[in-house]
Design a protein around this nucleic acid. Structure first.
Lengths: 302, 302
DNA sequence: TTCAACTGCTGCACTTTTTGCATCACAGAT
DNA sequence: ATCTGTGATGCAAAAAGTGCAGCAGTTGAA
């Protein structure tokens, strides 16, 4: 929609933090962009950017305005997708911010399934930790967030909660392989590979050993869940992940998942949510519904 | 804001129902307006108006769009007023849809009080019956609605409820004058003047006589509360109104109000509310707060 | 029917707005 | 002091929007 170019420009300048930089990204000259901003500030009667030696930054009036602008822009997307829906075609774009566990198996399958029904819908999948995922919702960079054990929930409207017990993952020739359930102590008697500190699984494990005689002494640490899953194939270590990030229990490629006794490690929760107060575009809402039902089939949800 | 001219035009066309008519109202030529609409429809990919022999009307895509547009326009007003508030000046416009009872005393006083504090704020006061007041909220023609006993509350978010017992109003020389409380039967033994059927007070009275031996046989009917108040001065009739629409009990100009026993006539409720899900501009929100506290001082509120 | 009055739409000339180039003034980093 | 980055501005070209006159179509009354 042409008539919103000015506000798109403001959004870009706010994100990029410099008029010249945003101009380049928008493929126009800085002159045109600068003039549009001056014009808007003139109409508004107050400046919305403070000019710094290294660029511009929103002032408080600008902060108010940018919230309005981003709502306006994403509402327009919703309206367009609703209107497209009227004529039978479902189109649109769904932007998802999620944690690593969703990347290898779950989301690719779900997106493929959705796109086979509605090929006009495009997807964006962005890896974000818990705090950044909520931030992405707030500045409308994402429609949906799927995160494990989120910290704060101020602007987060929960659509779904899925319990995810922490599972030990071992190679199929590891001594623990084939067990039905494990006590945490058993796992920790072998060399372990852990995600780095700020991830949800690590947090749950830290909580678990708190006040017990057990200690977490990882031989390998990584911020890549994919690396950890492959580490158990390469050497005889135990790592911990949540079910949704693991391959199907049948026919898995050489790894073995065993739930850890919930008496030792509290069960984590995976949350799907959206920005509080926002109305999602048709495509995003329907995709969220699909995810909900897919998760309900696999796990107990609430 | 210049950049919203196109959507303002669409709003006008939708309200007026004809391009040429709207063009005249907007002080431009029909050519320009027509072209803007064609351009928007072109960008959107679908028409938003259906062309009728006598003008245009929104189609279903247009209905979706107009909701978005009106939200956008009124949100901009809120943003502007919030930004103005940052610099200390409270400006803006408050549009109120209300029933007749608010017009003679209450609203003029309240608006005068508010404007003495914030002269930059302008007001619009629109007489609407209960259904139309809610419609005015929905299409953003009003920020606040103050109505008596509203019928449906689908898009209405109640901000305040004030009980308003039905009062008999008589001239100061009427036989009933000076009483503290009246039974309905006493009133109906005199000639009565009533509001026409669809008003709240009339409705409460109709309910009251339902299934009793009493009957409402008005000698005068009017849709003007002002006329009814003056009727009791001109001849010896009894009429019925709610307290907020009556002059101060002390020093009133020749009329006398006496509550009707609530055992006979159920107490009505005055509602103040806004459009559900909307965030009001600063001025409207503060005015609503002032009204709330003013009413809380006078009546029991909930 | 016939005609007037209304509708939305369109080609062309004109006006207004927006854009881009070259340049300036300023602030921090080197 | 120099250099590199920033946003702002005068001026001319390009683009977008506007108004006039006139088109085709429908409705409703004579």
């Amino acid at each position: 929609m042409r008539y919103l170019t000015s506000v798109r420009y403001i959004d870009a300048v706010a994100r990029i933090g410099s008029i010249r930089g945003a101009a380049e990204a928008l493929a126009i000259t800085s002159t045109a962009l600068n003039r549009r901003i001056l014009a808007i500030e003139d109409e508004l009667g107050v400046p919305i950017f403070e000019r710094l030696p290294r660029g511009v930054r929103l002032n408080s009036a600008g902060e108010i305005l940018i919230h309005y602008i981003r709502h306006q822009l994403s509402d327009l997307e919703r309206v367009r997708s609703q209107i497209a829906d009227l004529s039978g075609v479902r189109r649109g774009h769904v932007a998802i911010a999620c944690s690593q566990a969703l990347l290898p198996y779950f989301l690719p399958e779900q997106i493929a399934a959705y796109r086979s029904e509605h090929p006009q819908v495009t997807f964006g999948v962005h890896l974000r930790d818990r705090a950044d995922a909520e931030a992405a919702l707030v500045d409308h960079a994402a429609d949906l967030a799927i995160v494990f054990e989120p910290v704060r929930l101020a602007d987060f409207h929960t659509l779904l909660r899925v319990p995810q017990p922490v599972c030990a993952v071992v190679g199929e020739r590891h001594p623990l392989a084939g067990r039905d359930i494990l006590r945490l102590g058993e796992c920790l008697s072998y060399p372990i590979a852990l995600p780095t500190a700020h991830y949800g699984v690590r947090h749950l494990l830290e909580v678990a050993v708190q006040g017990s005689a057990l200690r977490l002494e990882p031989t390998v640490e990584s911020d890549s869940f994919e690396f950890l899953r492959h580490a158990v194939l390469a050497e005889s270590v135990v790592t911990f992940q949540i079910p949704i990030g693991l391959p199907d229990p049948d026919g898995q490629g050489g790894t073995c998942r065993i739930p850890v006794d919930p008496r030792d490690v509290p069960t984590g929760v995976l949350y799907m949510g959206q920005l509080k107060g926002r109305v999602l575009p048709v495509a995003a809402a329907r995709f969220a519904a699909q995810i909900s039902s897919a998760l309900a089939d696999r796990y107990e949800v609430s």
